[in-house]
Computed example of a mutant assay.
Amino acid sequence: ENPSARLSFSCFFCPRNGPVYVKNPHLDLMDEDILYHLDLGTKTHNLPAMFGDIKFVCVGGSPNRMKAFAQFMHKELGLEGDGKDIKDICAGTDRYSMYKVGPVLSISHGMGVPSISIMLHELIKLLHHAKCCDVTIIRIGTSGGLGIEPGSVVITDIAVDSFFKPQFEQVILDNVVVRSTELDRDLAEELLEYSRECKDFPTLLGHTMCTYDFYEGQGRLDGALCSFSHEKKLEYLKRAYNAGVRNIEMESTVFAAMCRLCGLKAAVVCVTLLNRLEGDQIRAPHEVLVEYQQRPQKLISVFIKKRLGLWNAQKLIDNVVV
């Protein structure tokens, strides 16, 4: 039997940072808040009872990947059962999938800024209504690398836009609002330190560039439309590399901006599926890509177990000679 299965997760934490807060005075005037895309609500569900013990939120694009991560964490935390019948809390909607394992919430966000933005609005309100305290939120995903080995895990130090600026532009009514994309530096450094426990893949700190498009917006030559040359593409990507960019994805700037405004400690940890300086199409075999996608999950598992005080206990168990 795994002794960690008997531990109470709540005992490891105190509300150092207070509850998750929202920056919307209109919410106080509402009799009920319906989290439509999550199939949850303040009157239909007891959100503090369901989610009040959440300390870690992990988000990623694919519903299947986030279910697999939840099942992985179920095993890593030594919880009862095999985790195969884990319940999708958002089963009443086809937009997102959400799974809870102990103090960990695993939720999909789809692809691109608009999709993750909708999910984050409702997720942050959910954490607020549930009176969650001291929450860390991490995006785990895939990306295209720049000048680094495929399979490398990039911990984002700064999320930048397509002009390599650390900002997110949000159109609100008819105004362009610019928001900072600063992430928690201490959290990034902590994750980098814990990556030493994952010796089978390289991990590094680097800038992550967020785009609004997978094809032209990322300088690909293989989309249905393309208005630039191979030389122009390489010139742009090399400028991005020289600016500190080590990977490219489609969610990090809005993720960083929204989490920062709501006081959430946030990090972005993505594996690279290819080196964009060498090509545009992902050609690695399926089994290789599956293993790549597990790499950020392994690092975050180490992080969560260390935060919960389970890592050293598990290492002692593993070293016991029967």
Results as ranks from 00 to 15, higher is better:
A5I: 03
F13D: 15
F13T: 12
F13V: 09
C14S: 14
V20Q: 11
P25D: 05
M30D: 06
E32A: 10
G41E: 02
T44P: 03
N46E: 10
F51S: 03
G52I: 04
M66S: 02
M73S: 03
K75D: 09
L77M: 12
E80V: 11
D82Y: 07
S97E: 04
K100W: 05
I107S: 14
I107M: 14
H109W: 05
H121N: 15
E122G: 11
K125H: 09
K125C: 08
L126C: 13
L127N: 13
H128G: 03
A130T: 04
T136D: 02
T142K: 10
G147Q: 08
G147W: 11
I148D: 13
E149G: 04
G151A: 02
T156E: 06
S162N: 11
P166N: 09
I172Y: 12
D174I: 01
D174V: 05
V178L: 00
L183M: 11
L192P: 05
L192H: 05
R196T: 05
L205N: 08
T208E: 05
C210W: 10
T211G: 00
C226A: 13
Y236L: 12
A240N: 05
A243L: 00
G244T: 00
N247L: 09
E249G: 01
T253S: 15
T253V: 02
V269T: 09
V271F: 01
Q294W: 11
P296E: 02
F303E: 01
F303H: 02
N312I: 06
A313H: 12
K315V: 06
I317Q: 15
I317N: 07
D318Y: 04
V320E: 04
V320I: 11
V320N: 03
V321H: 15
